[in-house]
């Protein structure tokens, strides 16, 4: 076994890449859940984003336009979920699952003629001299742009939820939709906007997969990332900053186990792969056990159907 080849810097850089798709998707889902809606269709929205972004990036040659298209695609498909759950009052769990099935199929159909193509290369930050500083350079100053953007999105969501009136209203809708409605807030409109934001973010996360991390289009390429994003929201106990921690931890475990293997360590892969989920359960239990703190984080109306009867 040779662990000297394990470079912490390289490890961190690659775990950030591995974590970014789930990070972006999870921050979107966090906003959705904060508004009181549980959308289990993250996987379906991610893969739609992956293919929309890929098609547009290939056709226009611009990854930036690709990312925009991915957000539009993710938001568009989440709109189906929004209409069904908010106007037709369908069950959110079932609708989310149906959305995943629909999204996986639709993406495969759309992508039929896009397998086997290389997308245009997405840029990385490259500041003369600074990006070349050992350790700090690769660690902070030479990622691809989307990694910085993903962190900015998290900051933005944090600011919105905790420091703005809009965020307050959104949280109110998730906490007690009847009371929010009585106060004159448009619960349904708020939730639809939250759902579409969630869709846009899932789409963006998916496009990061098809344009940067892998980068190519193949059917079913999200391979369960959407479900991990869902776990991540819980792990983060609905706190934006903790999404970063959680995503890097989740991504880190995968990257670390691959690296340990490459270094020659004989590790029980299956058991190691369970750990993020077990840790999430433990976090959830610790949080839930303290009733006072739960009420501050977990939206009380999560998954409940709202219909204004007045």
């Amino acid at each position: 076994m040779d662990f000297s080849a394990l470079s912490p810097v390289a490890l961190i850089v690659s775990l950030m890449v591995a974590a970014t798709p789930i990070l972006i998707a999870a921050i979107g889902e966090l906003v959705v859940e904060k508004s009181g809606v549980l959308n289990l269709g993250v996987e379906g929205m991610m893969i739609i984003g992956a293919i929309c972004g890929f098609i547009v990036a290939v056709e226009t040659g611009s990854p930036w336009l690709g990312f925009l298209a991915a957000m539009a695609g993710g938001a568009a498909i989440s709109f189906i979920f929004a209409v069904l759950t908010q106007y037709m009052l369908t069950n959110q769990v079932a609708t989310g699952l149906a959305l995943t099935m629909f999204g996986l199929g639709l993406a495969a159909l759309m992508g039929h003629s896009y397998a086997g193509i290389k997308p245009p290369k997405f840029g990385t930050l490259d500041i003369p001299f600074i990006s070349d500083i050992p350790v700090i350079g690769p660690l902070i100053f030479s990622h691809d742009y989307m990694i910085y953007i993903s962190l900015m999105i998290v900051a933005g969501v944090w600011y919105f939820l905790t420091r703005t009136r809009g965020g307050l209203v959104l949280r109110a809708a998730g906490e007690n939709h009847d009371a929010a409605h009585a106060l004159g807030y448009k619960v349904i409109r708020i939730r639809i906007m939250a759902i579409m934001f969630g869709g846009a973010m899932a789409g963006l996360g998916g496009a990061y997969l098809s344009l940067v991390r892998v980068p190519q289009w193949t059917e079913g390429m999200t391979a369960g990332a959407g479900w991990i994003a869902l776990a991540l929201v819980v792990f983060a106990s609905w706190k934006p900053w903790r999404i970063i921690l959680g995503a890097y931890l989740f991504g880190g475990i995968t990257v670390l186990q691959l690296n340990l293997q490459a270094a020659g360590a004989n590790i029980p892969v299956a058991y190691l792969s369970m750990t993020p989920y077990l840790v999430t359960i433990i976090v959830l239990v610790i949080m839930s056990a303290d009733k006072k703190r739960t009420s501050l984080n977990a939206p009380a109306c999560l998954g409940r159907i709202f219909h204004a009867s007045s």
Partner: peptide, 17 residues
């Protein structure tokens, strides 16, 4: 078949020389 994981595995191997 898991493109994401295969990509990560390749990155890990490259990182280790």
């Amino acid at each position: 078949f898991d493109p994401g994981k295969e990509a990560d595995a390749a990155t890990a191997l490259i990182a280790q020389g």
